[in-house]
Write a protein that binds this DNA or RNA. Structure first.
Lengths: 163, 163
DNA sequence: CAATTTACGTCAGTCTTGTTGACTTTACCA
DNA sequence: TGGTAAAGTCAACAAGACTGACGTAAATTG
C-alpha cells in the first residue's frame, strides 16, 4: 500500500478546519474594527472605505473596473461614489481615451482620509506580522490567495505588486 | 550599532501590508461565497449561518454567550433566532441550572443545514490548505489569531480545540 | 450612416442586518 | 424584599446590498 503520509499531505480533521473558519470570522472583525471607528466620525461606512481604498490603489480607474473589483451593483457603488464626490474626497473626470468612462481619483482630502484608514489597518497588520514572524506571514498570504474565487484572484493579482 | 536585521525582524513596506489587506478582502468574499449560495435557497442570510454555526459548536449555549461571540445586539440576534426556532432548526429550552437562561441546540433539521453549510466552507478551506501545505496553514492561523481583538481571541480560544 | 452596444447615472422599491431606546416577565441573589 | 440579570419584544431607523426600469452620451459595428 502506498503510504503517502508526510509533510506533503495534510490530514485535517473537520474540527481543525472549523477552527480555521472561526479564525477567519473573528480575525475579519478585528481587521475592520479600526477603520470602522474612523469612518464613523465621518459618517461613512465600509463601502466608502472600500471605494477609497481601491481608487487610491489604482488612480484613474473607471467605474466599471471598480464594480468588478468590489463585486457589487452599480446602483450600490453609485450611492457611495456620489457622496464621496459631493464631499470632495473623490474626483470623477470624463475619460480622455473613451469619453463614456469616468476616471476616478482621490482629492487631497480623499488622500488624507485614505492615509488615516490605511495607517490604522496597517498598524494592526504590522503588529500581527511582527508577532508571528515572516514564515507565518508568507503562509497567511498563500492561504488567503488560495481561498479566493478565480475572478477575485485575477483582480488581486492585477493590483500593483510591492517591489 | 545594533544591527537587528535577520529572521526575527520584519521589514514590511506599506505596499506589502496593503497587499495583505487586499488579500483579506478578496479571501473573505470567497470564504462566504459558498454558504451564501446555500443560504439563499432557504431564504436565510449570513446572520443565520453564524447563529447556526456557533450553536452547533457549543450545544446548549445561552443567548448571552452567543451575543458575546457574535458581537451584535440582542434585538438583532433575537430576530434571527426567532425565525430559526419558528422554522424548527433551533430548539430553545429553559435552562436547568438557571431558569432565566435558554439553552440553544440544533434540531435534526438544523444539524442537517449546518452540515451542508459546513461542508461547503470546509471544502474550500481544505482545497486551499492542500494547495499551500501545512507550514502555510500554520502561519495562516497564527496571523489570524494575532489580528483578533483580545475579547474575540478569548472567545476563539474558549471554543473546543480539535484533539 | 444607422443601429446597436457600452458606460454611466438615476429613480424606485425591497431585503437583510445592524443600531437605539423603552418596556415586560421571570428568576436569581444578597 | 428589593435589586440585578437573562431573555424577549415593540418600534423606529440606517447602511448597504439587491432588482428592474429608464435615459443619455459615446463608441462600435454592420
Amino acid at each position: 500500500m502506498d503510504d503517502r503520509r508526510g509533510p506533503h499531505l495534510l490530514f485535517l480533521t473537520d474540527e481543525q478546519l472549523k477552527k480555521g473558519i472561526e479564525a477567519m470570522f473573528f480575525a475579519y472583525k478585528g481587521f475592520t474594527a479600526d477603520p470602522d471607528r474612523i469612518l464613523e466620525q465621518y459618517g461613512y461606512g465600509r463601502a466608502h472605505h472600500r471605494a477609497i481604498h481601491f481608487i487610491h490603489r489604482s488612480p484613474g480607474t473607471t467605474v466599471n473596473n471598480l464594480l468588478g473589483i468590489l463585486g457589487v451593483t452599480k446602483q450600490s457603488l453609485n450611492r457611495v461614489l456620489r457622496t464621496l464626490v459631493e464631499d470632495g474626497l473623490v474626483e470623477s473626470r470624463v475619460g480622455t481615451r473613451d469619453k463614456r468612462e469616468r476616471n476616478l481619483t482621490l482629492t487631497e482630502r480623499g488622500q488624507a482620509l485614505e492615509a488615516d484608514l490605511s495607517d490604522a489597518q496597517r498598524t494592526r497588520m504590522r503588529a500581527a506580522y511582527r508577532e508571528v514572524g515572516p514564515d507565518a506571514v508568507d503562509g497567511f498570504r498563500k492561504v488567503l490567495e488560495a481561498m479566493m474565487d478565480p475572478d477575485m484572484r485575477r483582480h488581486f493579482n492585477a493590483l500593483k505588486d510591492p517591489e
